[in-house]
Design a protein around this nucleic acid. Structure first.
Lengths: 197, 197
DNA sequence: GCTTGAATTGAACCTATGTTCAGTTAATTG
DNA sequence: CAATTAACTGAACATAGGTTCAATTCAAGC
């Protein structure tokens, strides 16, 4: 056997990325073999190398594109003047987005240590841009006297950790709806920085 | 060469566990080889098997003993009647403890997916007990009308995620002292559940 | 329908892995 | 000091890993 009936790079490529994302999220990058990914797609391991130069790039590209998508989606939100409203918007956005792409988020969060230095720098810079967006909101609210927080940098990290934690337990069709979860997290986020709710 | 001068199981054993903890925390369980651990200790790989039946047990024992220590330390805290004070105490304790043992905490948090089912069940049960302690505080505060939170279970997970996040950035000798950090996190925790501060 | 190029196989290569074990040396005991 | 036990080596085994590549089959365009 060689080329398969119906085979097409526009089909196989995305399927490889999807399989890798799911497997990396479940078992971790280092614990997943190229042969496992290939098997999930229904292909031999060698075929993966038509779509990625190596395993490391598969991970790095996945993380980079996820963060780029995240930043793009964040930038697409309507601009709000009030820091309180902006924080509520950010919290809901963050939780909502993370709920819809749990695997990508999980990988981007857990696999930083498996990136080679060059890839790490790229991904870390994107992550920093995202965190800076939140920090800017907190800083604005603090300057306007709307938030009470001793350290905006620490509060940024604390909030992101809290909001990202949703991926640890949320499952579609559970006790709480997505909208419920977004609202509760946003409420906690606002209160945690002393915003009147 | 065979037995080394000055060799002793009471020395080598702990050194192996410490090296494994550090390496697992840095690179992840699956990415660390027995030979790397052995090299860190200054011993051949085969020697590790005098101290652990296999690699998996090394991980499982490390996680279990860490969680047992954590629960023991939690139980040793002075009992407080007021839910608000208890929450503040819990938050400070959690942050403080996590700061002092970042590697153990990191492994216990990140490597759950690399545990075999039997070990997973044990570790998960311990983790559940810890979470339940926090949930009990939130529930008590809610019942007493001191906290405003729609869902204590969700709030538990959100708070733990927020507080545990400290391990992602805190380094000894940084801009903020350990006590500062504990205070800020405790403050955010209290406010996030609507406790008067 | 034939040719060209795209998609994939399958086997191989080399390295690394977890684990075992007979043999060797240091510490300890009597 | 002899004998025993505890600690460790070094080499080996079997398997699995990432990656490469010649050979093969399918799809597309003329």
């Amino acid at each position: 056997m060689a080329r398969k009936t119906g085979s097409h790079s526009e089909i196989t490529g995305p399927r490889i990325r999807a399989a890798a994302e799911r497997l990396f999220a479940r078992h971790g990058y280092a614990a997943v073999s190229m042969r496992q990914i290939a098997a999930e797609v229904g292909v031999q391991a060698g075929a993966l190398y038509l779509y990625t130069p190596d395993k490391q790039s598969l991970l790095a590209d996945m993380m980079r594109s996820h963060l780029e998508d995240l930043l793009e989606a964040l930038a697409a939100l309507p601009a709000l003047p009030d820091p309180v409203a902006r924080l509520a918007q950010f919290a809901r956005f963050h939780v909502g987005y993370h709920i819809t792409r749990p695997d990508a988020v999980f990988v981007a969060y857990m696999e930083l240590r498996n990136l080679e230095p060059a890839h790490f720098a790229t991904v870390e810079a994107l992550r920093r841009r995202y965190e800076d967006a939140l920090e800017a909101i907190l800083q604005a609210g603090k300057s306007a006297g709307l938030f009470s927080l001793p350290d905006p940098k620490l509060a940024t990290l604390a909030l992101i950790a809290m909001l990202t934690g949703v991926t640890n337990w949320y499952r579609e069709g559970g006790r709480l709806s997505r909208s419920d979860v977004e609202a509760i997290y946003a409420d906690m986020a606002l209160k945690s920085v002393g915003a009147a709710v």
